[in-house]
Amino acid sequence: MSTNHVVPAKTYVYIFLALIGLTLATTEIAKVDLGWANTPVAFLIAGSKTLLVVLFFMHMKWSSYKMKVVAASGLVWLVLLFAFTVGDYATRDWIAVPGPWPQHPPASAAFDSSHPASVPSPPVAEHQP
């Protein structure tokens, strides 16, 4: 357990300075246009700050394996919630599977508008506004 493990004050101050540094970094990086990379980078910085706080300030580094599993389970379930919900929204625009398997030949050029005959049906559940 995290009993009676005393961390030197210096370590806490170093961690604190690292956190401040990361905060300034994320603020500055947000001002630079990295296209699609902006969000992942901001997320990465926030994640690393969280890791620092959890491992050092919350003594997870010296805690038992059980505590690590409890904390990790929260993260895993959060990812589950995100994965399936965002998964639904992301696949809403996909066209429905091209018909029952045996008779219906899969449309060769799904999006080729030159010969509309082969265009498969519009998606069953249209994208909401």
Partner: peptide
């Protein structure tokens, strides 16, 4: 302490989500 640090972690995520969205625009 654990509770307080957690409240801080929530803010660590809220900050980029609410203040830094496409700041370059």
């Amino acid at each position: 302490g654990l509770y307080w640090h957690f409240v801080d972690i929530i803010w660590i995520f809220l900050f980029p989500m609410l203040y830094l969205v496409d700041l370059h625009k």
